[in-house]
């Protein structure tokens, strides 16, 4: 037997190394190396004009001593927490509705499912522009028209005042992101053991009892995964917010990703932008760690 054959046999028989090699190479080039570069850059004061590579903690010092850092984290949390809660609740409700309508063979189920998915399929920047037009504070703005229909003298400020602007961002993000949680939960419902419901009906459990004593406990692993994935996605929401408010008015909707973009691409400060990116990376790693811990526990 030739030496080559022996080698190829040993790769095939000794484990997954050979098969994972292409993926490892791609991962190294596309994910690991850029991350290493960002980590390295965060310990410099590099700018586009002065790509200095001298080691320093100055960028972290500037970041953490900046009073706007805390407000940026607060704004980010104020955007992420309600977005995640509402996306999961609405996604759950729509999935339940579609599943139950499907069981009853009601017409229009497919249309509703497609309509919800369409929002998710839209590019974020398009969704941002659409919502910017809907939240227009001119008299002919769509949401303005609806508000004026109820209260003709109202002068709502959807995007030009700090708190309403943040609420508007959450609404737009929930509209776009609900479909994702709906898909996950709907998939869970499709594998749901229906005999549990039948038993509950025999035991005269009402709707709420069935929801809180059966559906949610059975789906809880899936719901937790859904929460974790949506949280990571929402922390990384950029395109929608960039098109909708650009972080304004003032800094009232400037979440971490927008801050990173601004620092690197408009202020050309690679060091501080990379240091801020490290904070976001830490949050994402934490969420991923929770996710894997959870999966590992489930498997055990």
């Amino acid at each position: 037997m030739s030496k080559t054959n022996v080698l190829s046999r040993s790769y095939q028989s000794d484990g997954p190394f050979f098969w994972l090699l292409p993926l490892a190479v791609v991962s190294l080039g596309v994910f690991v190396l850029p991350i290493i570069q960002i980590v390295g850059m965060s310990f410099t004061e590099a700018t586009f004009r002065d790509p200095s590579d001298a080691f320093t903690l100055a960028s972290y010092g500037k970041l953490f001593s900046n009073p706007d850092f805390v407000s940026m984290l607060v704004v980010t949390l104020a955007f992420v927490v309600p977005s995640v809660i509402l996306q999961v609740i609405l996604g759950f409700a729509i999935a339940m509705f579609i599943d139950s309508a499907g069981d009853r063979r009601l017409p229009g189920t497919m249309i509703v499912r497609t309509a919800v998915l369409a929002a998710w399929a839209l590019p974020g920047v398009v969704a941002g522009v659409v919502w910017k037009m809907m939240f227009s504070e001119l008299d002919n703005g769509l949401v303005m028209t609806l508000v004026r229909f109820v209260s003709p003298e109202a002068q709502p400020r959807f995007l030009s005042s700090s708190v309403p602007a943040l609420v508007s961002c959450v609404v737009a993000n929930v509209w776009r992101g609900t479909a994702y949680s709906m898909i996950l939960i709907y998939a869970g419902l499709k594998t749901f053991p229906k005999e549990l419901y039948e038993a509950a009906v025999i035991d005269r459990a009402n709707l709420w009892q069935r929801l809180f004593k059966i559906t949610i406990p059975v789906l809880s692993p899936l719901l937790l995964i859904c929460v974790l994935l949506i949280t990571v996605q929402t922390f990384n929401t950029f395109d929608l917010l960039r098109a909708l408010t650009g972080g304004g008015p003032g800094r009232s909707t400037e979440v971490i990703v927008l801050n990173i973009y601004r620092t690197i691409f408009t202020e050309f400060d690679l060091g501080r932008g990379s240091a801020t990116a490290m904070v976001l990376l830490a949050i994402n790693i934490l969420m991923t760690w929770v996710y894997f811990r959870f999966l590992t526990n489930k498997e055990e």
Partner: peptide, 23 residues
């Protein structure tokens, strides 16, 4: 000036904050 992009950004934030009434 290399400092101009930062100046511009901060003045945008300042003007936007004053007009929106937050500062």
């Amino acid at each position: 000036s290399p400092e101009y992009p930062k100046i511009s950004t901060e003045l945008q934030i300042a003007l936007s904050s004053v007009v929106s009434g937050s500062k």
